Amino acid sequence: MIGDDIILPCHLEPAVDAVDLTVDWSRTDLKPRSVYVRREGVELLTEQNSLYTGRTSLSVNKLQCGDVSLKLSTVQLSDAGTYKCLVPKFNAETVVTLAVGSVSSPVIELTNVKNEMVLECKSNGWYPEPQMLWVDSEGKPISVEPTKNVRGSDGLYTVSSKVTVEKGQSYSFTCDLFMVQSNTAVHIIINLAVCLISFGTVVILIWKCGQKKTGKFKLHSTFYPNVKLSSDLFNVLF
């Protein structure tokens, strides 16, 4: 995810001491292509692409065991791509593909319009482009205004969708945001179930996505009872 520190794996087999060897990490789609170079125990950063300044390193302790994996700090969207790890002495190389993603919590906004109420689900800071779906209490898709997906100057997406309901009735909706990266089999969902009660009370059940240390995802739930509508415009931020 954007902002994380990650390890791009690369190992010599059989394991040999690589402290004094040349290790070259690069991306052929960049100019200059150099991401990180270490030669005879010395970092050579003069030709390093400026995108990686101050964000790359190797572990000397791990080098002693033939582990030439690259640590990349504070991952950026521009870091997505294919990296090549090369140890010239053994003519050993490997290729690592890095996919970068970003998710964020949503905002629920309720607006009174005459005899109707407009419920908008909105979230920004997503990559790749997410999908949004409104469903009823039985999990069936409901008819809503077209979803708006806008990509900002930072490359991240803002997605929003509205559903309009009549006042004086009870409803139960779920706004699903999901992103599927087929190449990594990651499926991320944030659900917000909103029940609009006829006497003006809003009950919100939130399912938020959290990350386990294993890299897989699990769902956590939080319940907020009896949130009152205090004005024509009501925001709930998570």
Rank of each mutant, 00 (worst) to 15 (best):
K84S: 09
V227Q: 15
A99W: 15
S57C: 10
P128M: 07
F178G: 00
L133Q: 14
E47Y: 08
S172C: 10
M179A: 04
E145M: 02
Y224Q: 06
D24K: 06
L233D: 03
R151K: 15
C209W: 05
L12A: 05
K89D: 03
H11K: 11
I197M: 13
C85K: 13
D232G: 04
Q64A: 12
S160M: 01
M117F: 03
S137P: 02
S137T: 11
V163G: 01
D136G: 02
S172H: 10
N61P: 00
P130I: 07
V159R: 05
M1K: 03
I7K: 13
M132W: 12
L44W: 09
C209Q: 06
V180F: 10
G168T: 11
W126A: 01
R27T: 01
L237S: 02
Y52Q: 06
P88G: 09
L44E: 11
E120M: 10
S153Q: 15
S170N: 15
C85Q: 11
C121A: 08
M117L: 12
A99Q: 14
L51F: 14
G125I: 10
L45D: 12
V60M: 06
L192G: 02
L44C: 11
L110S: 04
M117R: 10
V95E: 13
L133H: 08
V95L: 12
V103A: 00
Y224R: 04
L110Q: 07
I206G: 02
L119I: 14
Y127C: 03
Y157T: 11
S161L: 00
I189Q: 08
V35M: 02
G155S: 07
G41Y: 09
Y36E: 05
G215T: 09
F217R: 05
D79H: 14
V203H: 10
E116G: 03
S34Q: 14
K62G: 07
S78K: 15
W134I: 04
E145C: 00
T94M: 13
S69W: 14
F223V: 00
I204A: 08
N183P: 03
S123Y: 02
A92P: 03
K167C: 08
K71H: 15
L237H: 08
V180A: 04
V23L: 03
V23P: 00
V144I: 04
S34L: 02
S221P: 02
V96A: 06
S143L: 04
L44Q: 15
V103C: 01
